Simulated assay, not measured.
Amino acid sequence: MTTGPHRGHVWNICGEGAGPFGSEFGFTTGEPGFAGWVRHWVEGKPWSDAM
């Protein structure tokens, strides 16, 4: 569970580390938060689409 300023964000956790989803964090054009991640996913976009 995440608290503080990153509460409500979807996180990608992998062998290299972890990072929150959202354009403000880089690597994606999606809006931050769960709703932004769902919209991004429904549109069929990959997690990292800003490269």
Rank of each mutant, 00 (worst) to 15 (best):
Met1Tyr: 10
Met1Phe: 13
Thr2Asn: 02
Thr2Gly: 01
Thr2Ile: 12
Thr2Trp: 04
Thr2Glu: 07
Gly4Thr: 00
Gly4Ser: 02
Gly4Pro: 05
Gly4Arg: 00
Gly4Val: 02
Pro5Glu: 00
Pro5Ala: 01
His6Ser: 03
His6Gly: 00
Arg7Val: 10
Arg7Trp: 09
Gly8His: 03
Gly8Gln: 03
Gly8Trp: 06
Gly8Glu: 05
Gly8Leu: 03
His9Asn: 13
His9Gln: 15
Val10Phe: 11
Val10Gln: 07
Trp11Glu: 12
Trp11Tyr: 15
Asn12Asp: 10
Asn12Gln: 15
Ile13Phe: 09
Ile13Gly: 06
Ile13Ser: 07
Ile13Tyr: 07
Ile13Arg: 08
Cys14Met: 14
Cys14Ala: 15
Glu16Cys: 13
Gly17Phe: 03
Gly17Thr: 10
Gly17Met: 02
Ala18Val: 10
Ala18Trp: 09
Gly19Glu: 11
Gly19Ala: 09
Gly19Cys: 02
Gly19Val: 08
Phe21Val: 01
Gly22Thr: 06
Gly22Cys: 09
Gly22Glu: 08
Gly22Lys: 09
Ser23Asn: 09
Glu24Phe: 05
Phe25Ala: 09
Phe25Arg: 09
Phe27Ile: 12
Phe27Thr: 12
Thr28Leu: 01
Thr28Pro: 04
Thr28His: 03
Thr29Arg: 11
Thr29Met: 01
Gly30Asn: 04
Gly30Gln: 04
Gly30Thr: 05
Pro32Met: 06
Gly33Trp: 06
Gly33Met: 04
Phe34Cys: 07
Phe34Tyr: 15
Phe34Ser: 03
Phe34Pro: 05
Phe34His: 07
Ala35Cys: 06
Trp37Pro: 02
Trp37Lys: 00
Val38Ile: 13
Val38Leu: 14
Arg39Glu: 11
His40Asp: 04
His40Asn: 07
His40Pro: 06
His40Phe: 08
His40Met: 05
Trp41Asp: 10
Trp41Cys: 11
Trp41Ile: 06
Trp41Lys: 12
Trp41Tyr: 13
Val42Ile: 13
Val42Gly: 01
Val42Glu: 14
Val42Ala: 13
Glu43Trp: 08
Gly44Arg: 08
Gly44Leu: 06
Lys45Gly: 05
Pro46Glu: 00
Trp47Tyr: 10
Asp49Gln: 11
Asp49Lys: 14
Asp49Met: 12
Asp49Ala: 11
Ala50Cys: 12
Ala50Gly: 13
Met51Ala: 14
Met51Phe: 11
